[in-house]
Structure formats: structure tokens, C-alpha cells
Amino acid sequence: MPYEKELAALSDPTRQAIIQRLRLGPQNVARLAEGFPISRPAISQHLKVLSDAGLLSVTPNGTRRIYALSPDRMRDLRDWMNSLWDDARGAFSRAAHDLAKEGTPNDRSD
């Protein structure tokens, strides 16, 4: 799957919570870590996974790094997800048309 990495990154509850926190705006690690019952290095590790998956943007600000949601990437992901159902719909439609051409065994009059 093209977005395997993103999905794996999103499959963790803490990382989901980080995403929710970043909805409120960009934040640095120290600020982000305040809301979680886990250590700052642990938060950093989660941020790395999200960043590596392309889901967050990281901006240096002095000695700190500011993390923000990466909207373009997310839009791409959403588009791909939507396309899964479009694929399934297209595949089903083709199969249905093929089946219709075959006709039913009972209504062949030739």
C-alpha cells in the first residue's frame, strides 16, 4: 500500500493524541509533552515516527524545533483513501457489466 508508513504511524493512540493536540496549532516538544503521562524522549520518538511518515512538518526555531501538521500530505492521504472506495466501486461495476452481458442461465432464449 502506498501509504503503509502513514497508516502505521497513525495506528498508535499516543500519536493520534499528538495529532489532535497539533490541531490547536504548532508546538515544540516541551509544550507537547506537558499533556502526556510519558517522558519527553518518548514524545520525541513518536514525533520522529510521524515526521518520517511525512505527516508533520518540522521548523527549527533557535535551539528548539516546532512541529506542525503537514496539510498537503494529509490531503494526499485522504485522497488516496477515498480512491480505495472508488477502486472498489469501479471493480464492482465492471464485474456487474460483465455478468449482465453473460445473461442468466434461465433467460437465454437462443
Binding site: L7, L10, I19, R23, L69, M74, R75, R78, M81, N82
Partner: peptide, 9 residues
Amino acid sequence: LCDRYKSAA
């Protein structure tokens, strides 16, 4: 995740 992502973005 997608839907959450869309709104998050």
C-alpha cells in the same frame, strides 16, 4: 484516520 486527518489539517 483519513477523516480525522482531513479535519485535523
